[in-house]
Design a protein around this nucleic acid. Structure first.
Lengths: 344, 344
DNA sequence: GCAAACGACGGAAACCCTTTCCGATAGAAT
DNA sequence: ATTCTATCGGAAAGGGTTTCCGTCGTTTGC
């Protein structure tokens, strides 16, 4: 009932004093790590901490230790209107391991990302994870790489989720193969007049998925005219609009492949909203949870986001190799109602 | 090209040395606020910082200042399968104001929440925001209140989002009124045999929405039998299962009110999976974005999450009153296809 | 025109809170 | 009695911010 918690948080020294030991001993007792503390003292310290409502000042810990515990995830382009499966996956995975999790969100502008990296660097987290599509024309890449390399030189761990090709440990997923397999699947179902709704020209994710899809069609003997690949923003609303553009051109289209599920939902909703008489099939990529609730259920490339997150954390917590490692998570096509077999 | 950034982050002293000033001056130059620094020195410091790739150690800043900048959002029960509108709203709002944002997620167990509050307290953030349904039978409430009061006594700001009744600044939304209005609307459309799919018995959010709904029906002269209120977990899958339980009982039901949209989606999907969706009307609550993509489009109570987040941040950044303030954000019913007028 | 007062600015040092290194002490084992 | 061992405390980081004080140049008053 020592109600001296009036205006300043209890600090370690207060706990130590109340327990009748030194600050060093109190510290050792509280986070056990170090070497032994006599049992009697340990319990006295713990009790004192409880009485005072003591909470370790995490910032001070970070300063003293030179690094703060846990994972900081830098997500680009958050928030969007759909649950970001990567964020959710990493959050769940860190929770499973009891690691503190911090989310820092950067705008979609590449410059923001560099700023955000520097902000994250300021936190000095053990593990810095970065997600969000990179682009090919990004002039800030050198700055980004430099900031991250500096961070690794300082002893931090960097893991990239999404993008291969940068000199850091990376978890990627098989975008190209997924696109290829989707093409194969759609052709197998009987579709011949295809179109792609894709994202920003320079985005690597969408580029790889699109390229894989085109390659898959080519291997099946189908040439995809360039004007059947629509380019726009990488989100649902843009896809909604692009679908309109496509259909107004009155070209023959029997199936649309959207490079991710939110965009596919945009396509689907557009088709429904306008009641287009043509029955156009739709396929997506990612297998986000929201798909369960739409009609028709959506054909997509399933990716295990749990696995992506797990791999990333495993990479991050294992000792660093001398060269950056890359893990690729593969997906597989799931055919659902949105792409019924063509009964020609 | 001073490549001495080999193994340890540049610190303020390095910057100061390179700029030929003292650490004090460098500090003043870098975060401007304090007193004036002669322009010549200012630019030299800024240049030095740039050359060295200097990033302020945020932990050290927090220790020195006694508080770390920005908003820490404590979200209970994250992540779920749908984008959490509160989280997204607060994230967007903090970004708009340029405030650093940190997310800490707690499990669904109330004990986790107290732990998480203490973890958050350790960060000493300026603003601590808490969201996630509270329950009536929660024995940890006193501990929670004590931890938070202590935090406020230490100079932190606490804002609760969702729950009225605790002695802190709060942004609530009109759950009861929303339920009431929904009942009125459904009766107005001609529905008479109603049922409610609700969440955990002790959850305040679902309790208020349910109570409001029942009251609305009563005022319209309709008595809702107790066995038409189904109780289960507060998520989509539970709602999916509960719908099955309800319909298997073969009672007359012409409309189901689910206490939130994810649950309504579960209901909708169950109806669709098992037969004709149009026989039973469905209504939800929240107006989450995912609704745009489902068929039939879902009748719901619209809430402006942007407004909720804005109010919360306004509360948090304005000087504290002597008594806790409460802002209530009201919603309104939006009738969509899932509840067509009954043509008796 | 000169002295006094004043304002702007720079730097030294204290401080924030915790961890960790290292030396000290007491008791146990030999 | 001497050497370990286990435990503890003092003090030094760790990287910033902020207070306090001194200096220096400029303005004001006479």
């Amino acid at each position: 009932m020592n109600d001296l918690a009036t205006s300043r948080p209890a600090r370690l020294a207060d706990v130590a004093r109340l327990a009748g030991v030194s600050a060093a001993t109190a510290s050792r007792a509280l986070n056990g790590s170090d070497r032994g503390v006599r049992e009697a003292n340990r319990v006295r310290v713990l009790e004192a901490a409880k009485t005072l409502g003591y909470t370790a000042n995490i910032a001070a810990q970070a300063v003293a230790r030179g690094r703060s515990r846990g994972v900081t995830l830098l997500a680009k382009g958050m928030p969007d209107d759909y649950a970001n499966p990567i964020t959710a996956g990493v959050l769940a995975a860190t929770q499973r391991r009891g690691l503190p999790f911090t989310l820092i969100s950067a705008g979609t502008d590449p410059v923001d990302l560099v700023d955000a990296v520097n902000l994250a660097r300021g936190h000095r987290p053990e593990i810095l994870m970065i997600t969000g599509g990179r682009t090919t024309d990004d002039v800030t890449i050198p700055a980004l790489v430099e900031a991250l390399q500096r961070y690794e030189a300082e002893g931090g761990r960097v893991v990239l989720v999404t993008q291969e090709g940068l000199p850091f440990d990376t978890v990627a997923y098989a975008n190209r193969k997924g696109g290829y397999d989707m093409a194969t699947a759609l052709v197998g179902l009987g579709y011949r007049d295809l179109a792609v709704i894709s994202g920003l020209r320079h985005g690597l994710t969408q580029r790889d998925r699109t390229e894989g899809f085109v390659a898959g069609l080519a291997d099946a003997g189908i040439e995809l005219p360039a004007d059947r690949i629509l380019i726009g923003d990488f989100n649902r609303d843009a896809a909604y609009a692009m679908t309109g553009d496509l259909l107004r051109r009155n070209v023959a289209v029997d199936a649309i492949f959207a490079v991710n599920d939110s965009m596919a939902l945009g396509v689907l909703t557009f088709l429904r909203d306008t009641g287009d008489p043509r029955r156009v099939a739709v396929a997506g990529f990612d297998d986000i949870k929201a798909l369960r609730d739409v009609t028709p259920s959506l054909t997509t490339v399933h990716l295990s986001w749990e696995q992506v997150a797990e791999e990333a954390l495993t990479l991050a917590t294992s000792p660093r190799g001398d060269r950056p490692r890359t893990r690729v998570v593969e997906g597989h096509v799931i055919v659902r109602e949105s792409t019924p077999p063509v009964s020609s």
